[in-house]
Each structure stands twice: as structure tokens, then as C-alpha cells.
Amino acid sequence: MTALHLPDADPAYLRPWTDSETDVEAILAAFDSEDMAGQAGEPVGTIEAALRWVSPWLDPLATPGVAFAIDMGGLAVGNVMATAIDKRHETAWVSYWVSPHARGRGLASAATAGLAEHCFHELGLYRLELAHRVNNPGSGRVAVKAGFVAEGTERGKLKYLDEYGRPVRFDVRTFARLRDDPSPRLVPLRVGN
């Protein structure tokens, strides 16, 4: 697993992804872990694969969604995104990840809360949905801390690659946050440049 040194004093914030060498290295470091390896639909272990992963997020006007790098001291240490944006129904699907070396700092919850604020106030959305594999309860704790409410379990909802590159189906626990739900008890990360 690739490790990066993280500065402790610099505040984290959300920013657009780039195809810079630094961001590509951060993407490779994030996907170089057992739990992240199959999350992208293809292994992300080469520069070319990292560039394919980030390419939809380089032109926000051409992508039906938003994605932000979680930046800590100039390093991308995670991602938060809203996809499947439906303007008519004012909904979107939220997902997030934090690199293994940056976990345990509350970044995923603060970033998800920040993304929610952006979606509600900048994009005019009303309902945000997300789900996590039932074998990953930590992701559920992130959702709750970010102000999302559990709604139920869906069987066989998501398909990811296992450690051998084979597709596997997972049951998921679903959550949602509405624009008029109470704000979470944390300071959301803000979108910056």
C-alpha cells in the first residue's frame, strides 16, 4: 500500500479534481487497498486507469454530476460526489471515499455534509440518497454523522469487483438526507479552489 505524509495543521476543504501528477498519485494511493480495489468498476493501478477515473470530473459542464477531492495540505485524500442528478425531482446519488492513510479524522462525514450543503444550496436539490454495503458499517456511521437517515436495506443492489476481479453483488443499507432535515452536528467541509 502506498503511504503519503499528511500535514496535521492544514484545514481540509473540497476542491475540483485535476489531472495533475499529484492528484493522479493520490488516486493510485487510494485505490491501492483491498477495500477500494474494486470500487471503480475496473482496477485503478496504473496512471492510465487513474486518468480514466478522474477524466469525467475534469469538465464539470460535461458531466451530469459533481465530484470534489477532499484536500488536506495540498493533497487529495478522498472523494465525495453526487451523481445521477435528476433536476425534475431534485435528487442525486451520493458516494464518498477516503484514502486508508487519511481515515479516522472525520473527513468523510465532514466532506459528505459539505457536499450536501453544496447540492442543496448551489444545485437546488431537495433529496440526496446513498447506500453502503452491509459488510461496511463504518460507511453507515459516516452517513449518519453527515445528517443522513437510514431508510432500509436493498438486496443485491450494488456490484463491485472482488480481489480477483470477479463481479460480486452486495446488499446495501440505504440512507437519505432532505434539504429541510436538521443540520448535522459537525462542521461541513467547504468548497474552495
Score class of each variant (00 low, 15 high):
Asp19Tyr: 04
Leu107Arg: 06
Gly104Asn: 05
Glu34Thr: 07
Leu115Gln: 06
His101Ala: 01
Ala76Pro: 00
Thr18Trp: 09
Ser139Gln: 06
Pro7Ala: 06
Lys145Trp: 04
Val94Asn: 10
Ala50Pro: 08
Gln39Ile: 09
Pro16Arg: 13
Thr83Leu: 11
Ala12Lys: 02
Thr63Arg: 15
Leu4Ser: 13
Asp71Thr: 02
Trp57Ile: 00
Val168Asn: 12
Arg105Asn: 04
Ala30Thr: 07
His89Trp: 11
Trp97Pro: 00
Ser183Gly: 03
Ser139Tyr: 00
Ser95Arg: 13
Trp53Val: 02
Ala3Leu: 12
Met81Trp: 07
Arg179Leu: 13
Arg185Val: 06
His118Glu: 09
Trp17His: 05
Leu61Asn: 12
Leu123His: 07
Val54Glu: 10
Leu6Ser: 03
Val44Asp: 03
Arg173Trp: 08
Asp171Pro: 13
Leu189Thr: 01
His132Ser: 00
Gly38Leu: 00
Arg169Tyr: 05
Arg166Asn: 03
Arg127Ala: 01
Leu14Trp: 06
Gly106Gln: 08
Glu154Phe: 11
Tyr96Val: 02
Arg166Gly: 07
Ala30Asp: 06
Val144Ala: 14
Lys157Ser: 11
Leu61Gln: 14
Thr112Ser: 10
Ser99Val: 04
Leu161Ala: 06
Leu128Ile: 08
Ala40Tyr: 00
Ser183Thr: 14
Glu34Pro: 01
Arg185Ala: 12
Pro56Val: 12
Gly73Glu: 13
Ala12Met: 05
Phe120Ala: 09
Val134Ile: 05
Tyr126Pro: 00
Ser99Asp: 04
Ile85Val: 10
Gly45His: 09
Trp57Arg: 15
Leu4Gly: 05
Leu75Thr: 03
Phe175Glu: 14
Thr18Met: 11
Val168Glu: 15
Thr174Val: 13
Pro100Gly: 06
Ala12Ser: 12
Glu122Tyr: 03
Trp17Ala: 09
Gly73Cys: 03
Asn79Asp: 15
Arg88Val: 11
Thr112Gln: 12
Ile27Lys: 04
Ala3Tyr: 10
Ala26Glu: 05
Leu130Asp: 03
Thr2His: 12
His121Tyr: 13
Asp171Asn: 02
Ala26Gly: 14
Asp23Ala: 08
Leu58His: 11
Val98Phe: 00
Gly114Trp: 02
Asp181Gly: 10
Leu58Lys: 12
Gly138Gln: 01
Lys157Tyr: 11
Asp71Gln: 05
Leu6Thr: 07
Ala113Leu: 04
Cys119Arg: 06
Thr22Met: 09
Glu117Gln: 13
